[in-house]
Design a protein around this nucleic acid. Structure first.
Lengths: 131, 131
DNA sequence: AATACCCATCGTAGATTTGCGATAAGCAAT
DNA sequence: ATTGCTTATCGCAAATCTACGATGGGTATT
């Protein structure tokens, strides 16, 4: 059901133990929050997921930079932004998990590019959402 | 400089003490975080701000609902979603602060609609972002 | 003025995010 | 095997987010 989107979203992931914001909740410990899962429509979660990834100016800026340069290395970004290398790396990870970018080993560096397939999906989702 | 966008974004707000995610930081207390403000390009923050507001499935669903019904009351949403009234209200507040919706007093209720002006701005920003 | 209705706001708890420095992990060359 | 370079991950602290119940505020109506 979420096949086309989610499966390709994860195409760059190494394993599945990555960050997954599960709305509703999968943990077993007692909570204040309602236990009942909220079921959202078809593309609602996918769109929210993309939006969440875009919800930080640094990540927007990274994507813009990637789009301009077509590709770049982590180190390039560290020089562009006044943020620690670990912080940049974390933002890259989130963008990767959201499926918006992909990394390619270019030893000793890692080259990041926009993930064009998912980019198109995201674009379509936003376009459709805004009518 | 951010005139056209930001000023209209705030058009539905009552006062300015609302939530403002200031990237970089305005508080004076000692922090681990870098004190230097990060300056982002023109529309980067505006886009991130819209994206952040869209970054939760419930808010996407609320907006879809508003778009279908063209308008609706808080109470309607409370019936649609398995969430507390206060939670719905909070999501509405965030959407309002982001400028995506606006409220109109319709005693004893409050009628929420899409803020068409800012909707167009957001749409344009995302469109331009995705090329 | 008091009531009733609807909704916002407050206060709180737990989860998540963001940031940093420090450390580990991966790969190529020596 | 060791070194060097690059990047990911860990562990922590502070801030923010999400959710709830409880309370407060505003606007008719009685």
């Amino acid at each position: 059901m979420n096949g086309a989107v989610s499966s390709s979203l994860m195409s760059t992931k190494i394993n599945d133990s990555e960050y997954h914001p599960t709305y509703g909740n999968s943990s077993q410990k007692q909570m204040k929050r309602s236990l009942e899962q909220i079921e959202y429509k078809e593309n609602t979660e996918a769109l929210a997921r993309f939006a969440k990834a875009l919800g930080h100016p640094t990540r927007i800026a990274i994507l813009k930079h990637l789009d301009n340069q077509s590709c770049c290395f982590t180190g390039d970004l560290v020089e562009v932004f006044p943020l620690a290398q670990s912080t940049i790396s974390q933002h890259l990870k989130e963008l990767k998990n959201a499926g918006l970018i992909q990394g390619e080993l270019k030893p000793p560096k890692i080259k990041y590019c926009i993930n064009q397939d998912n980019w198109k999906i995201a674009k379509a989702l936003f376009q459709q959402f805004f009518d």
